[in-house]
């Protein structure tokens, strides 16, 4: 057995469920080997993504969640619009003259905070989505996502300011969902992320430059009002879309809502952590790593339970259709129910 075959088998073992792996694992690997050039030693990143996607689809199949793909596209657009809106707001916050001294601008020059680069990366994703949707957009989102996670160690190494974890974590969760953006959307569907960023930046600039706020850092109104407010807005918009689509017998919105539950919960991380801190040690000015981790765990577990309950309910009570009625490719019912 070659090293390449061993590596493909390892990936299949990692991503696919046991039963399917036993039945199909070698067939998949053999096909990869037949397609590989003689000098190939490692699976390509695209192969890893393909196997991860294939494995995920096989894991979702038994619970009847294969129609999740169409919901993921809708959720991707909504998530990307939210991330870019938050980026627009964050960029204004970090470049505001009233805020920059707090970030250390006077001492460290233009590179006063890693947040500037981070928000620029997300804003770039909004622009790329308009001019080159699909592969390039996903690349831009992926890069921004990596940067969102990387700013934590980067800040530790460089000593520069970075946005707090309760800002970065929901951004990363939304960014993951945003990777599901459709590859070839209509022009009007490409605009919301850029429009959201412009609107959020305008509103933030009006508030910040209008004065009246003595401490416009991340720990002020962004933590208590803006992030949870964005979560509630996203929840309401998704619910409205879900209800509107459901009236037309289209259940994409329900799938999108399930996918967005976790990221929406993460947007309330700061107030939730504050509540946990009050319960644990009487509270404090800012949440600690422990309370933030506990809050994130609560949100993740709650979202997981809600999604599991929804899938179980769907599996048990509804949408049990004959296989022939289902779309051959995505598994969703065909005819009038194409997006269930």
């Amino acid at each position: 057995m070659s090293d390449l075959e061993r590596r493909y088998l390892r990936l299949v073992k990692l991503f696919y469920p046991d039963g399917y792996r036993n039945e199909r694992g070698t067939e998949i690997v053999d096909t990869y080997l037949a397609l590989a050039t003689p000098d190939r030693r490692w699976p390509s990143p695209a192969d890893v993504v393909d196997l991860a996607g294939g494995g995920l689809r096989q894991r979702l199949r038994p619970v009847g969640a294969t129609g999740i793909r169409s919901g993921a596209r809708l959720a991707g657009t909504l998530a990307l619009s939210t991330t870019t809106a938050l980026a627009g707001s964050g960029a204004v916050l970090e470049t505001n003259p009233a805020t920059t001294p707090w970030f250390g601008f006077a001492q460290q020059g233009p590179l006063f905070s890693l947040g500037v680069g981070l928000w620029a990366a997300w804003l770039l994703a909004a622009v790329v989505h308009v001019v080159a949707p699909g592969r390039w957009t996903r690349l831009a989102i992926g890069s921004a996502l990596v940067l969102t996670v990387a700013v934590i160690p980067l800040a530790a190494v460089t000593g520069l300011f970075r946005p707090p974890v309760f800002v970065l974590l929901p951004q990363a969760c939304l960014g993951l969902v945003a990777l599901g953006v459709p590859s070839r959307p209509a022009l009007w569907l490409r605009l919301p992320p850029l429009a959201g960023a412009a609107a959020a930046a305008s509103v933030s600039a009006a508030v910040l430059y209008g004065g009246g706020n003595e401490f416009p850092g991340y720990y002020g109104w962004p933590a208590g009002q803006v992030l949870p407010g964005a979560g509630v807005t996203l929840l309401l918009v998704t619910l409205l879309i879900a209800v509107g689509l459901a009236l037309r017998d289209d259940f994409r919105g329900a799938w999108a809502l399930l996918l967005l539950l976790g990221p929406i919960g993460m947007l309330t991380l700061r107030p939730l952590a504050a509540e946990i801190a009050v319960g644990l040690y009487g509270g404090g000015p800012n949440p600690t790593w422990t309370t933030l981790a506990a809050a994130a765990l609560v949100v993740a577990v709650a979202a997981f339970i809600l999604v599991a309950l929804a899938l179980a309910a769907r599996h048990r009570f509804a949408f049990t259709r004959a296989a022939v009625e289902r779309c051959a490719e995505c598994g969703s019912p065909t005819g009038g129910d194409a997006n269930r």
């Binding site: 199909r24 067939e27 998949i28 096909t31 990869y32 397609l35 695209a46 192969d47 393909d50 196997l51 991860a52 996607g53 294939g54 494995g55 689809r57 096989q58 199949r61 294969t66 296989a323 022939v324 289902r326 779309c327 051959a328 490719e329 995505c330 598994g331």
Partner: peptide, 15 residues
Amino acid sequence: RPGTLYGALDRLVDA
């Protein structure tokens, strides 16, 4: 790609 192909084939066989 094989991961996508066999997923599609499974659904086509099921259907």
